[in-house]
Design a protein around this nucleic acid. Structure first.
Lengths: 136, 136
DNA sequence: GAAGCCTGTGCAACCGGGTTGCAAAAGTGC
DNA sequence: GCACTTTTGCAACCCGGTTGCACAGGCTTC
């Protein structure tokens, strides 16, 4: 397990520190996306700034990606191992209105849409709200 | 013009006050969505709270709808006159990455997507980023 | 092994958007 | 004119995110 964690960090050129391994472990342990506040609660000895910067570091190195699900707080989820955070890696995110968990729907690519003429497309953020399988 | 404004408010059961007429006028005058900060700048004599509550009132009465385009500040845009803010009134929003303006793509309904089994859909927020016709 | 350096961590303080409480002002009905 | 409701304005707060700065730890270089 420890090996896997180390490896996952090295793969993305991130030095494994205690905090980083802890945070990564949290991500590996659950499917739902994780916010800064979640980490603060889980590791109540660790400093908010450190956790914040850990997330930023992970994000910069494309180990995780951020999700703005409209709840007011950013969440983060592990990228696919092959992920390059390129447009084709974009996917739909799902927010359960009951348990408030956010999931990557990695198998649900963002559908193509037709823009008005003279508009060009760069990226798309698509968040679906509803009930997840646990809550319905 | 004044008539139109009054009428538009009455239609939604909103009492026409000076501030409200001014704010509505601002919405009618431009296509792009408007945020609280925009209003504060435009009417630098008016109070932030008043403008805030004006927006809330308009939103409650479905004269405008809010748009979370991921820029960190909510924006608002006029609803269609027939709008009921029901699921079928949902549409795609477009954020120009250059001029930072946000538009309703009223003619672009949100495409249907397939959720994993046991997930049920409630609503969808879809924001497309790119270049608008003025900026490309 | 001391001096210097770089990275990571922790604390405090700040920032901006949004929100609330409360009191004054404006409008409404009698 | 008076009581009542609504709207407005000010102040203060909340919360998520962010920055500045100092310190700790590891590692090099002499």
């Amino acid at each position: 397990m420890q090996e896997t964690l180390d490896h996952r960090l090295e793969e993305r050129n991130i030095k494994p520190t205690a905090v980083r391994l802890l945070v990564l472990k949290a991500f590996m342990a659950q499917e739902a996306a994780i916010g800064l506040a979640d980490l603060e609660n889980r590791f109540d000895h660790a400093d908010k700034t450190t956790l914040y910067r850990t997330l930023k570091t992970f994000e910069e190195h494309k180990l995780i990606h951020s999700i703005d699900d409209g709840t007011g707080a950013l969440k983060y989820a592990l990228c696919q191992e092959t992920c390059d955070c390129a447009p084709e890696d974009l996917h739909v995110h799902f927010l359960c209105t009951v348990c408030n968990k956010t999931f990557c729907l990695n198998d649900t690519p963002i559908p193509q849409i037709n823009l008005p003429t003279d508009f060009s497309l760069d990226s798309v953020n698509m968040v679906v709200k509803g009930l997840c399988s646990d809550c319905r």
